[in-house]
Computed example of a mutant assay.
Amino acid sequence: MAIIQLTINNEKYEGEFDTNMPLLWALRDAIGLTGTKFGCGIAQCGACTVLLDGKAIRSCGITVQSSIGKDIQTIEGVEDSMYRSLQQAWIEEQVPQCGYCQSGQIMSAIGLIKSNPNPTEKQILDAMSGNICRCGTYPRILKAIKSFIKSNP
Rank of each mutant, 00 (worst) to 15 (best):
E93G: 00
G130D: 15
Y83M: 02
S59M: 08
Q73F: 09
S115T: 06
M82P: 10
K114A: 09
R28S: 06
A43K: 11
V64M: 06
G61D: 08
G41Y: 12
I68G: 02
K122N: 13
G41V: 11
L125R: 14
V95A: 02
I62G: 08
G35P: 13
Q97K: 01
G104L: 10
S67E: 04
V78Q: 05
Q94T: 10
T74H: 05
I106R: 04
Q87M: 14
Q87H: 12
I124Q: 06
Q88S: 06
Q73T: 07
E76L: 08
L24C: 05
E79F: 15
D53F: 12
G104E: 05
G61Y: 05
D126A: 07
Q102C: 04
G54R: 06
A30Y: 11
L33K: 00
K114L: 15
I72T: 00
E93T: 05
C60R: 00
I62C: 15
L51E: 10
G35Y: 14
P117E: 06
Q105M: 15
D80T: 09
C98V: 03
G99A: 10
W25I: 07
L86C: 12
N118Y: 11
C60V: 04
R84F: 15
G111S: 01
G61Q: 02
C48K: 02
M107G: 01
G54S: 11
G54A: 11
Q102E: 08
E121S: 07
V95P: 09
I31Y: 09
S85N: 06
I110T: 04
S81G: 06
S66P: 02
V64W: 08
C45L: 14
A56N: 00
C98M: 07
S59T: 02
D29L: 13
L23K: 00
P96Q: 10
S67P: 10
G99E: 08
Q94C: 13
A43S: 15
M128W: 11
M128D: 04
Y100C: 03
Q65W: 13
V95G: 02
C133A: 09
D80M: 04
A109C: 05
G46C: 12
G32H: 08
M82F: 08
I110S: 01
S59I: 10
L86E: 09
T49Y: 08
I91K: 00
R84K: 14
L51M: 12
G77W: 08
E93H: 14
P119S: 05
I57K: 06
E76V: 07
C60D: 04
G61C: 04
L27Q: 01
K114M: 11
S67C: 13
C60T: 00
I124L: 15
D126G: 02
S115C: 01
I106V: 15
L125M: 15
E121I: 09
A127M: 13
S66A: 14
N116P: 10
S81K: 03
V64L: 06
T34L: 10
G39A: 12
K55W: 12
A47R: 04
